[in-house]
């Protein structure tokens, strides 16, 4: 029975199938919101008010001609999108969406917060390698920018994620969520950290104002310049799933997780991730792209010190609570 449940967990919910469907839904939600912010209509004709548009886009890409540059390393070039997709899908398994046992298991153990953070930073490496192996000038510039940006946002994000964990006295996502479910008022102490986490997540997802690695008007497609067809579809899917996982991680840590078993947990998950995605969309619509040097100095001058300040606040608060 446990094996069946594990298989269900891996492939149906919250594993592969759910992730694929929900991430395309999130992309539609993001696109529609972005369009409404801009007084446009957004996707409209595929399915009810265009809800199937992201799926249609991906199917279309799957059937497109797939070109590998002659000078690129073919095996690595082709393997990277699959690796990337596998990594973010794995990261999704650690979100405490539906835990059928409270025991320590393969998907919930002390320290899984760090594992998720690590798995979420791996796609950046994948992007870098993809850009580097494309042997295209624009892709190379994009790859260098990906890495430069990583040094900017990774530290503030990790620091921001740590502060609620310190308060909850646990490195396990489900325990952090349970702690805040028991003491919802303590969530207010983490508001600063929440803001930093949302901003750095935007940078991790490489969206405006941080879409520097694939800034269309500067370096064409950035790291994806040479990618086409199936591989590009995989990268698109990767970005969508990364957005869901990132939003889920923030919802777990800063918004008290997803209590209430299978169905209520699902509802909680959908609502909370959609709130985060709403914030991400609003930020994307309200800003213009900044330069790479501005991005790095912004994150080290403001985000990192603020994240440290947040940790100080938490430590002092913890002393009072004792």
């Amino acid at each position: 029975m446990d094996i069946l449940k594990t298989l269900l967990y891996l492939f149906v919910y919250p594993g592969l199938l759910f992730l694929l469907i929900y991430s395309t839904f999130c992309e539609w939600f993001d696109r529609k919101l972005y369009a409404r912010f801009q007084n446009r209509m957004g996707p409209l004709h595929t399915g009810q008010s265009g809800i199937l548009q992201p799926i249609a886009d991906i199917i279309k890409l799957l059937f497109k001609e797939d070109i590998v540059p002659e000078k690129a390393d073919k095996s690595i070039f082709s393997a990277l999108p699959v690796f990337g997709l596998a990594i973010v899908c794995t990261a999704a398994l650690y979100l405490p969406v539906w835990h059928y046992s409270t025991k320590v298991s393969f998907n919930s153990f002390p320290g899984d917060l760090i594992v998720v953070a690590f798995l979420l930073s791996l796609p950046t490496l994948i992007f870098f390698l993809a850009g580097w192996h494309s042997t295209n000038f624009f892709a190379t510039i994009g790859a260098v920018r990906v890495l430069t940006m990583l040094f900017g946002y990774e530290v503030p994000l990790l620091l921001a994620l740590l502060s609620p964990a310190i308060l909850a006295d646990s490195w396990r996502l489900s325990e952090i969520a349970a702690f805040y479910q028991a003491n919802p008022f303590l969530l207010l102490a983490n508001i600063l950290g929440f803001c930093i986490a949302v901003i750095t997540l935007q940078a991790k997802l490489e969206r405006v104002p941080f879409d520097i690695p694939h800034a269309e008007t500067e370096i064409v497609g950035g790291v994806f310049t040479e990618y086409s067809g199936k591989k590009l579809a995989f990268f698109r899917l990767l970005s969508d799933i990364e957005m869901v996982v990132g939003a889920g991680l923030i919802a777990t840590v800063f918004m008290a997780g997803f209590p209430g078993g299978l169905w209520w947990g699902l509802l909680n998950f959908v609502i909370k991730t959609m709130i985060v995605i709403f914030l991400l969309s609003a930020m994307r619509a309200a800003c213009s792209r900044i330069r790479i040097d501005q991005m790095v100095s912004f994150s080290w001058r403001y985000l990192a010190p603020l994240a440290v300040l947040q940790i100080f606040i938490i430590i002092i608060l913890k002393g009072f609570l004792r």
Binding site: F37, Q38, N39, V208, D211, A215, T217, A285, S288
Partner: peptide, 16 residues
């Protein structure tokens, strides 16, 4: 100018 700076919302509004 908005579009070149990646500020697509500005672009949409001015063009509207």
């Amino acid at each position: 100018a908005g579009h070149e700076a990646g500020f697509d919302t500005f672009f949409m509004y001015t063009w509207r």
